[in-house]
Design a protein around this nucleic acid. Structure first.
Length: 477
RNA sequence: GCGCCUCUAGCUCAAUGGCAGAGCAACGGACUCUUAAUCCGCAGGUUCUGGGUUCGAAUCCCAGGGGGCGCACCA
């Protein structure tokens, strides 16, 4: 491939331009003009040249800006620098000024009187019909994917609108957005393997947060009765279509509330977001219909296991009976597992993926929920739920454990598991225990996977589609 | 980490053991109303890499690399 001829205008690229019209606005304003109209309206547009059709002494081009696309209509008779206009490359950024007209076929166009090159596209790009479909190229060269593939851009736009709406919605309910540390001296708030880093001046190892939870609850102790954070969190685990090592959690905490309040917030937030962004709560995911309308079903974990696996289980049954039930469904209990862990494994193996939902799975074993408060009426369980949608966990919430003595016991159990080799178990966070000593009121807490919510609303089957720059193995050049 | 699949021109893809091709993009040209414009012409390759089998390998085998999917882990 030989290089395109240099354009003389590359030497005079402006530092700023002032377009006064956008493609979508023009389409809106002039949508019903008859063929060969002249509006007398002169506009300046700017964007990227995406298609070009040359006809000798006239030429058509599609100019894309962030709002959409508008046709440029250039001709030797009326366009300054017409010869150079026809030598523009697809992908070049230009600005053009001219009258808004329609062509013989009725296509709304800017009849270019003058134009300027803003930036050249020096690299080849995707097939104009197929775009770029190689998944590796799409994620590695997102800058190319985003303008070659309309759908990629739409998903990221949807994400932006979603997060923006969530902020407004929570602020309207007196939730305060806060920012808490990403460097944690003690990783906590979730069971996951953290990334480690090192601070040179302090000469201490720090961990990238796996959850903001413990800091947000410290703020509740400090008097912030309703807080939330849109928190990037980091977990040192494998990559998959549904897992990226860094992802975004919405966590919120509300004083004086319990987990039933969190269910209400969750279903209203998700249904509201769907209404706001898609205009309906009746969506389709992966070709299957899904109703997000309120209220969502609520069912206990043990009832759902009975429903889907035909096993009637409870934590008061004999240990060996529970383990034998696990083996009957293909779960091999490990020696360190207590009955709560075995029960959870049975649920995950037999039930979770079958829950199309949405459904609130309630009442988890205390053993696997070190930060949740004891259930007010079921021994061995805590007041916790996960919201399952399309077979996946969308959120996790509980009535927060606010008793410092009980919290210490839970931490100690976690530390013992860690000492026994569970490198995802929590450590004892003495400062958090000290904070609880000052008094955490009854509090409901909720964490929603923002990426997964975007996937749901965008009907995306891979988390990489909803993250602008997903984690990939570094490229070697 | 394990298993399966995959990698060919800038992009999208053919060629299944017998001369590596097409469309688009690029480059040169024609065309005064196109819509993935059309037409003519020209050029474009470490077939991911390295070995092996074979008269002959994009194709079969081995090893390595990138990616995808599944499992495991998790949200």
């Amino acid at each position: 491939m030989s290089d395109p001829q240099p354009l003389s205008q590359t030497d005079s690229v402006p530092y700023r331009v002032e377009p006064d019209a956008r493609a979508a606005e023009l389409a809106e304003r002039f949508h019903d003009l008859p063929e060969q109209s002249e509006t007398g309206v002169t506009v300046t547009v700017a964007g990227r040249l995406m298609l070009r059709r040359e006809m000798g002494r006239v030429a058509f081009a599609s100019l894309h800006d962030s709002s959409g696309s508008i046709q440029l209509f250039a001709g030797r008779a009326w366009t300054d620098g017409f010869a150079e206009f026809t030598r523009l490359s697809l992908g070049d950024w230009i600005t053009a000024t001219g009258e808004v007209v329609t062509t013989k076929t009725g296509e709304l166009s800017v009849r270019v009187a003058s134009w300027q090159l803003l930036a050249r596209a020096r690299r080849g790009f995707g097939d104009k019909w197929h775009g770029i479909s190689d998944v590796d190229t799409r994620y590695r060269q997102r800058y190319a994917d985003l303008w070659a593939n309309d759908g990629s851009r739409r998903v990221l736009l949807l994400r932006s609108k979603l997060v923006s709406w969530i902020r407004r919605w929570l602020e309207d309910q007196d939730f305060v957005e806060v920012e808490t540390p990403i460097f944690h001296p003690t990783p906590g708030g979730a069971t996951a393997r953290p990334f480690t880093t090192h601070h040179n001046a302090l000469d201490v190892d720090l961990y990238l947060r796996i959850a903001p939870e413990l800091y947000l609850k410290r703020l509740v102790v400090g008097g912030f009765e309703r807080v939330f954070e849109v928190a990037r969190v980091f977990r040192n685990e494998g990559l998959s279509p549904r897992h990226n090592p860094e992802f975004t959690m919405l966590e919120l905490y509300q004083a004086y509330a319990d987990y039933t309040d969190m269910m209400s917030i969750t279903e209203n937030l998700v249904a509201g977001a769907a209404m706001q962004i898609l205009g309906t709560t009746e969506i389709s995911y992966g070709g299957r219909p899904l109703s997000l309308s309120v209220p969502w079903r609520r069912a206990t974990l043990t009832d759902l296991i009975a429903e889907h696996a035909g096993l009637t289980l409870d934590l008061d049954m004999a240990d060996e009976e529970m383990r034998s039930a696990a083996r009957s469904v293909g779960v091999t209990p490990e020696p360190g597992w207590g009955p709560g862990k075995v029960l959870l494994e049975i649920y995950e193996k037999t039930t979770e993926a079958r829950l199309w939902g949405p459904v609130f799975v309630t009442d988890y074993p205390k053993e696997v929920s070190p930060l949740a408060r004891d259930h007010r009426s079921r021994a061995g369980y805590v007041e916790r739920f996960e919201g399952i949608v399309a077979g996946r966990e969308l959120c996790n919430a509980f009535s927060e454990l606010n008793d410092p003595g009980e919290q210490r016991l839970r931490f100690e159990a976690q530390a013992a598991a860690k000492a026994a080799g569970d490198d995802e178990a929590m450590s004892i966070d003495e400062d958090y225990l000290r904070a609880l000593d000052f008094g955490l009121p009854p509090t409901g807490g909720l964490g929603i996977g923002v990426d997964r919510l975007v996937m749901l609303l965008a009907d995306a089957d891979a988390i990489r589609d909803v993250i602008a720059f997903p984690t990939l193995r570094p490229e070697t050049f």
